[in-house]
Simulated assay, not measured.
Amino acid sequence: MPMKLKPLSEQVIVVTGATSGNGLAIAEQAAKAGAAVVAVARNAEALDALQARLSADGSRVATCVADVSDMVAVERIAAVAIKAFGGFDSWVNNAGTGTYGTLEQVRLEDHRRVFNVNYFGTLHGSLVAARHLRGRGGAIINVGSILGDRAIVQQGPYCATKHAVQALTDTLRMELERERAGISVTLVKPGAIDTPFPEHARNFMDTPPRLPPPLYVPEVVADAVLFACMHPKRTLYAGGGGLLSSAFSQAAPRLADLAMEMVGKTVQQKPGDAGDPTRRDNLYEPRTDAMRGSQHVRARRSSMALQLQKLPTSVVTLGAIGISALALVARATAQRR
């Protein structure tokens, strides 16, 4: 069937990991745009607060307490969406968790837990969403990371899961395209975003963790995700800093390795600023949730790189041709002089 995505105001959007960081920004921005939202998280108290706040503004919100590592729980999300709104149009696999420490420091059960949430949680959501959307059309958006392109020291398990999520997303896209299911599949790759992730992650370092700058606000990721709910896109990078890092690593992988070995640990540590202790370590149990991190950082409020990616491909191509032509004219003029 042909791929046709609805305007946000006509959509029902499922968002996992909806009570914290990027997920909270996605849920709030979706509701603000007029979409009905099915908010999913482990934190029942935070879900209740989110529903009360958004409903007070007239938004349509349903909630589901679920751990996405459990397939039965993920199937329950779809049941909640069907009961509350008759189904859904977009499914956002955003829930994630992580650790800080070397591969040897992180316990094997913690490696598995990160994979169970980040990879299998995305797989579970993708399978349930595809089953529901097949023949109806819609969008599946998986929130990956630039660390799916470029591994970083101290976050090995997380990086490995984001590599796996990228392969999963590509495979899902090909399978659904082959059967003409009418489902758009997008991978959103955030750079460093000012969320509670460093506080929520289980930390094996002897110093509080942080995300390396430049950081962006979670609304940048929400912008990318909600754009993908309406427009079929293969990949969207949320944040120019992450896009440049990815490009540099692919162009000069060995040089990137050396740089990472020299400063990779240092730029991920924030001595004396551990943030809110009530948020610490949510690997197995929910902790205090919020949209932004509580550490003292600066975060950019917009991403020009993302806005350029949202332009039609033809416009980007013409722009690149135009810039190249101007460069050639300038060079020829300089040579004549």
Rank of each mutant, 00 (worst) to 15 (best):
T195H: 05
G272R: 15
L258M: 13
E10N: 09
T317K: 06
D110I: 06
G322S: 06
P232W: 04
I141Y: 04
A41G: 13
Y284V: 09
V143W: 01
R300P: 02
A35K: 07
A252D: 03
A84S: 10
A325G: 10
A46I: 12
L318Y: 05
P190H: 07
A27C: 04
C229G: 03
L211K: 06
H124V: 05
V297G: 03
S249Q: 09
D223R: 12
M260E: 10
E179K: 15
Y237I: 02
P196R: 00
G144I: 07
G23T: 07
G87L: 09
A49H: 08
S9I: 02
G98I: 02
D149I: 06
R180Q: 09
N93S: 13
V68I: 12
S145C: 11
Q268G: 15
S69K: 00
Y158H: 12
T235E: 15
Q335M: 14
E175C: 08
Y100R: 11
T63V: 11
E109M: 13
A160L: 13
T186D: 13
I321N: 08
N116S: 15
I26C: 04
F197D: 03
N93E: 09
F248G: 08
G87R: 11
A41H: 10
E219F: 07
A81Y: 04
P208V: 11
V72P: 01
G87W: 05
T122E: 08
T195F: 05
V165H: 11
W91K: 10
P232V: 05
V80D: 02
T161R: 07
G148A: 09
